[in-house]
């Protein structure tokens, strides 16, 4: 994104630098304004509706020190990671299996694509009914939500692999396994990472939504429990932590992607 911004004005370096300062300053001012608006909103609307930002910060610190928040975050992360691993495993392995079975692929593809449209979250009550109130329904939810983007990306990625590269590798004597690993897997990486950037944050929010509805621990539980007890500061604290968690993971992924895919000509704009 930034590369394009700078490309727009091919001005002197000093002007670019000056622009950079304005942007940074603007961002800081905007951030301060947002917090100020939050504070004013809190004062106007009252503590039941909008928690005071300083009380929220205070709450996050004390609950972190007491270990309560840490525990909730741990519960949420653990479930997200397990669910993610399950969904990711099937999302990657299935397309590679289907690659060898074109007839089966043709037969089931329309149904898989149709099932993409079902809002997965709506299945939670059914999962609770079927799988009880422990981790199982949440794992199903997270697994499904992770499975779809990964599966679609890997599936499309395998289809889009440059046949000429595969041919070239074959001519040079590469085995099928070697081609899968070297050509297909590497060609897939940009697709896979685009999906990962969708799936990993989604795993966390899915876990949180699941915890809204079932369970007695985790960030989602913390938020919903606070709401039911009119503890608005708790709701805000929970949402701030959840947002921060997702955003940190996002930025880590972006960074890893950039490093791993250094061979790519330009950092392609994230496809939404």
């Amino acid at each position: 994104m930034t590369s394009q911004d700078t490309a727009l004005d091919l001005a002197q370096p000093s002007q670019v630098k000056w622009r950079q300062y304005v942007v940074t300053a603007g961002r800081i001012v905007l951030a301060i304004l947002l917090v100020a608006a939050w504070k004013i909103g809190a004062d106007r609307a009252g503590p039941i509706y909008v928690a005071d930002p300083f009380l929220v910060a205070n709450r996050i610190v004390t609950d972190t020190m007491s270990g309560e928040l840490v525990h909730h975050v741990y519960v949420t992360l653990r479930l997200s990671v397990i669910g993610f691993a399950i969904g990711c495993f099937f999302g990657v392995v299935l397309p590679f299996l289907l690659r060898r079975l074109p007839r089966l692929t043709d037969a089931i593809e329309p149904y898989i694509m149709a099932s993409v449209g079902i809002p997965k979250y709506a299945l939670i009550p059914l999962f609770i009914l079927w799988f009880g109130i422990d981790d199982a329904p949440k794992l199903w939810l997270v697994g499904l939500l992770v499975f779809y983007p990964i599966f679609i990306a890997v599936f499309a990625g395998i289809r889009n692999v440059d046949r000429r590269l595969i041919n070239m590798a074959r001519v040079m004597g590469a085995s099928e396994a070697m081609i899968s690993r070297e050509v297909i897997w590497n060609s897939l990486q940009s697709f896979f990472f685009a999906a990962l950037k969708i799936a990993l944050p989604r795993a966390i929010s899915a876990t949180i939504i699941g915890e809204f509805l079932v369970g007695n621990a985790g960030l989602g539980f913390f938020i919903e429990y606070s709401r039911q007890n009119f503890d608005t500061t708790g709701v805000f604290a929970g949402i701030v932590i959840a947002t921060a968690l997702v955003l940190v993971i996002n930025s880590v992924l972006v960074r890893i992607d950039r490093r791993l895919n250094a061979w790519r000509p330009t950092d392609r704009d994230m496809e939404l």
Partner: peptide
């Protein structure tokens, strides 16, 4: 800010909106 808003788990805001 927009990137943050895009990435933030909006569904987690549901309790807040209900409030």
């Amino acid at each position: 800010f927009m990137v943050g808003g895009y990435g933030a788990p909006k569904l987690a805001l549901a309790p807040l909106f209900i409030l």
